[in-house]
Design a protein around this nucleic acid. Structure first.
Lengths: 110, 110
DNA sequence: TTATTTGTTCTGCATAGTAGAACAAATCCG
DNA sequence: CGGATTTGTTCTACTATGCAGAACAAATAA
């Protein structure tokens, strides 16, 4: 693993999306969440490959949910952030905070 | 270019380091600044390649400074963030803020 | 029984991150 | 002077991340 435990930029926001969405999050909703919040248009392939990498690192767990009765509603792959993922998120946030701290006047929040 | 204009995670903190350091920043001080602030130990090669990429994108400008009279003090390559870089920084910060907004209670600042 | 919809996986490539050795230029000091 | 030392940058080689879009799968509608 490259940098100790720092998240890539997409990994970071995908993890945040999972936190926002809470239980029942899956690929499509993660994508929509990110687009809705940031306006950033991201391909579904990018979302999944990130989620998969996150899972490989043990930051996220996936499980198959039951299909809904909606038209085309096939079984979903549910993703959920776990303890290590929350830790990684906090670590990244801390690093940013430390780099930003004191720049408030000039740079606003975060 | 992949994502619209979002910075990579290292690009982000290197840019922040430049803001912190202000005029006269150069490779070695950028590295030290990051290490001092975040505790993250980063190789000098990583710093330079990031700075170079940032320069290629027009986010940063470099120029050769005069050598100091200190032992081994050779001419430095001075780096300075410029307008486009500040914009990119703000855009990334905004994206993070939007993803984090409302999670305060659970996730603290940032 | 095929058209449509929702959702995931696969493929292939572009960009970013990383370490460390090599190299360069200056000063120190015998 | 000229080698040792110090500060600083560049080069090399590779791994990890980010990204898009096509292919594929499974469900319902009609």
């Amino acid at each position: 693993m490259p940098r100790g435990d720092l998240l890539g930029s997409l990994e970071y926001i995908v993890l945040l999306a999972l936190v926002r969405l809470g239980p029942g999050a899956y690929g499509m909703t993660v994508r929509r969440q990110i687009e809705a919040r940031t306006g950033r248009n991201i391909s579904i392939g990018a979302v999944y490959s990130t989620l998969e990498r996150l899972e490989a690192k043990g930051y996220v767990t996936s499980s198959t949910g039951a299909p809904t009765a909606a038209r085309g509603g096939r079984a979903k792959r549910i993703f959920q952030i776990d303890a290590a993922g929350e830790r990684a998120l906090r670590t990244s946030q801390e690093a940013i905070r430390k780099m930003t701290h004191g720049l408030k006047r000039r740079w606003g929040t975060v």
